[in-house]
Amino acid sequence: MSSYHLDHLQYLETEAIHIMREVAGEFERPALLFSGGKDSICLLRLAEKAFRPADIPMPFLNVETGHEFPELISFRDSRAKELGAKLIVRTVDEAIAKGHATPAPGEISRNKLQIPVLLGAIEEFQFDCAIGGARRDEEKARAKERFFSFRDSFGQWDPKAQRPEIWNLYNARVNPGENMRVFPLSNWTEMDVWQYIKREQLAVPTIYFSHERECFRRGGQWIPVPPPHTDLTKPDLYAGARPKPNEPIKKLVVRVRTIADMISTGMMESPADSIDDIIGEVAAARVTERGSRADDKASEAAMEDRKKAGYF
């Protein structure tokens, strides 16, 4: 190979940096969705590469379901601080209290409730663009999404009326009230993300590495036992998500492959305790990353339905 040649990670990187800078150039009030998960960790490094030595010209935004792994939250906060960025957090709890979100009767997962919270934050701060870490290899409906994914004033995605995306010319025009979701990692695979984390020596939350944890079996997956309900003056946040008498608790050596929140992330039994081990596991994996997420299993069109409604 000639010296004027990029390998696949360098190619994906330059493509993503170009997109980040297009966002900075085209939008008045962009935000970057940062959860502390592996994909958004890559986004932050790409933002540094796109905008340093200046400040990253957009705040970080995260929507909490209230069921997060504490390790993820502390990682998120310290990383944002390290980068000198403004971190905006909006929660499902707040939204329920204000009446902006209403849980469906009997539904434990708050996954869907993130939608009105995200849309509320976009409205509150008048964001015209939100950068997210979604990848096309994650799921079939995502495979059809553009880099610049237009949302109408209800935050909805219309897969049949997507703007054609030609060359590297992204149509970023939106009318007031409409907004854009931008996905710089669209072309990245799970393997690319881990290889990039390794190349860039990026820190990740400890739950990605093998550790001992109490789990119980539900829906064919190992679900982590939620933290105890201590403040009895408040309702149990994890009601319905705790192990039932016929769901015995087991102490296992596990890690997460993909992070939703505590009640919808299946833990995988794994001894992987380094990035190299994880790369080896991804290489040998026989199920997809989202195979361990209960939220996608509901129906074959589960993701499509949530995206149309304004999901990330």
Partner: peptide, 19 residues
């Protein structure tokens, strides 16, 4: 064919990316 309408009609209606 990732979208519901595509599976129902047995056609591909948008660009699908695979890796």
């Amino acid at each position: 064919d990732g979208l519901r309408a595509e599976r129902e009609q047995g056609i591909t209606i948008d660009v699908a990316y695979r890796y």
